[in-house]
Simulated assay, not measured.
Amino acid sequence: MEETITGADTAQIPQQRGESLLETAVRYAEERHWDVFPGTWLETADGVQRCSCEDAGCAAPGAHPTRADWAAQATGSATVARRMWQKQPTASILLPTGRTFDVIEVPESAGFLALARMERMELTLGPVTLSPDRRMRFFVLPGASAKVPELLRKIGWSQSSLDLVALGEGAYVAAPPTRFAARGAVQWACRPTPANRWLPDAEELISPLAYACGRDR
């Protein structure tokens, strides 16, 4: 759970504890200017949580789009977001990448190693999520998905040799406090604050991320 943000940060993406998905989605649109769209949700049948898509083999239960035109559905309007979640208050919160941010995704173990290294390097980070699927996602400036292969090549890595994925236009990530069936909720490893409103470029983070993924193989 997120801790209460105090002082000047109070109005900026507050704690998730006890806050509805609706209010959180509205805050992402209103305070961070992120596009949001509602995804699937969890339903309980015979004591078992299942995805609302009703696919018994769903790979991301409770955390994927409900329709093919999800990209057109995404909105940066707090008013529209509120209306969307009022229709389905338990819908997951999904954020399209390739708009206000791209995402670099790595395994959880590599992500924690990279975070420690970045702290020592005194790098400025954007928000970072930690998901129940044991993946960590680093928010960076848009355009990263196109640049990452060449950035990796320049430091001696090929993208195919690392478990490192750059998500840009046409992709999305689940945002806290979205829940995955039986696996828990998406959390912030580095929460959104006024200090990280300006996102880092992929070039600033690629070296420690590649190093951590190489160590994690």
Rank of each mutant, 00 (worst) to 15 (best):
D102Y: 12
A144H: 11
D133T: 14
V80E: 12
V173T: 15
G57A: 08
F139V: 11
I93E: 06
I5Q: 14
A11G: 15
S158G: 04
L21G: 15
G168K: 15
R27K: 13
V186S: 02
L199K: 01
E204K: 08
L141M: 07
A71L: 10
T66H: 02
V36C: 09
D9V: 00
G62P: 00
A56I: 08
D55N: 09
Y211H: 12
D216K: 07
M121Q: 15
A63I: 10
V140Y: 00
E150M: 09
A91Y: 01
A56G: 06
F101N: 14
W34H: 12
R50C: 09
P142S: 05
S160L: 02
P127M: 08
W34Q: 09
A60Y: 13
G170Y: 04
G170W: 06
A45K: 15
P65S: 05
T97E: 01
T24S: 14
A174G: 15
P61E: 02
E54P: 01
G168N: 15
G143H: 10
S160K: 13
E169T: 13
A68S: 09
L130H: 11
A110V: 12
T79Q: 13
A60L: 12
A174P: 07
R27W: 06
R27I: 07
A110D: 09
R67H: 07
P176G: 03
M121L: 12
R215P: 00
G156T: 08
G18F: 01
R153Y: 06
G76Y: 01
D55G: 01
P14E: 03
E204P: 00
S52C: 03
V186Q: 04
A25H: 13
R134Y: 11
R67Q: 11
